[in-house]
Write a protein that binds this DNA or RNA. Structure first.
Lengths: 204, 204
DNA sequence: GTCTATATTCCGATAGAC
DNA sequence: GTCTATCGGAATATAGAC
């Protein structure tokens, strides 16, 4: 088995390590040495596979957004009645986030740190389009299925309620004295309670 | 007018500039040079007034948390019936955040970057205590004023709905094509809609 | 492809004159 | 208190042997 056969694995290992470090510390806080250590390779290899730190970061960022946002779009555009969709979305969305618990804070951080770079990538490749879902809410209001609400506000309510726990996780665990398992249970409970909370509010 | 008379102003000017830079870029992303430029002074002065970068950051951090969190505690512990308090809290909280729109992202960023440092300061000095409010919710459930809900979940719903727009502001403005004025109007509308949304959900 | 050694850049911090 | 000049360390990046 020649060393050359390792390259794809190395490439993958670097990306995996880079994700871990960048997600936790951000572009500015991450150290190339730390990423190399985490991947059990030499620092020079990072530059061999990815030109420089920024290129490595872009790869990580592309994976973070390119992985999650299409899934969210798909949930939003699923064809089903609104009330059913709210439950469906909440449940699936929190599940997705639970599998990628560090990504929300990562996105928020990088978006606020450097909006230009963020939206350059975001608007080119990814593009989140809630237009269909917004229309569905409008239609439900018009047809008397739900109370008259501002569709944008309702949409943001859904998103806020799902994402916030992942952003504030350390604070929540600290203030309410939770350990990892407590927090996991808390999320599972929340998965069920959010749709009840929303639907109770808007149903007629 | 001697130069010596300027020192308090300089101290203040440094803090103001440091806040601006640290809020936007975080501890890691901020440059001492940038803070000095912003304050129109020399880099060496930063070290004269504040020992080093960390000390300057600590001062900024202390102001950020020490300014906002006590106000929030006060809102939470205000003496009034629950439903009224929900409206009161939402309105005042969003007003406070509007005056300090960068602080939420700053807190989330630093808390996730370095939880140890964060909670060392947080637990010593500030301490957020929602216990009284949680009890009030429990009591309202017991007395049949609101539907049976998990107090912790309801509390986090309130917080999530208020804070999230400030965290996701660039994204919201981008996706929905808002300018600064649009966003300001959006927040004012939200201030009124959040309590309606919550109370509709839990009232009997 | 992988490594060691080294170059280069950047940035926080200090020395010392005024 | 304020400035200029500079040091010293750290981190990114590259050269070059294997």
């Amino acid at each position: 088995m020649k060393k050359k056969t390792i390259d794809i694995n190395t490439h993958e290992r670097i990306l995996t390590s880079a994700k871990k470090i960048f997600y936790l510390k951000g572009l500015d806080g991450a150290r190339m040495q730390e990423i190399a250590d985490e991947a059990n390779i030499n620092k020079a290899m990072l530059h061999y596979y990815f030109r420089n730190k920024e290129a490595l970061f872009d790869a990580v960022f592309a994976e973070a957004t390119g992985n999650i946002l299409p899934q969210v779009s798909e949930l939003l555009n699923a064809e089903m009645p609104l009330l059913e969709k709210i439950s469906y979305f909440t449940d699936k969305y929190i599940t997705i986030l639970s599998e990628n618990p560090l990504i929300p804070a990562f996105i928020i951080k990088e978006m606020n740190n450097n909006p230009e770079r963020f939206f350059k990538i975001f608007n080119e490749k990814i593009r989140l389009k809630p237009a269909v879902f917004i229309k569905q809410i409008k239609s439900a209001v018009r047809n008397g299925i739900i109370k008259p609400v501002d569709p944008l506000q309702l949409f943001l309510n859904m998103i806020s309620l799902c994402i916030f726990p992942f952003l504030a996780r350390p604070m929540i665990m600290n203030v309410f004295g939770m350990n990892d398992d407590d927090f996991r249970k808390f999320l599972n409970k929340r998965k069920k309670e959010i749709p009840v909370f929303i639907i109770n509010s808007i149903k007629i």
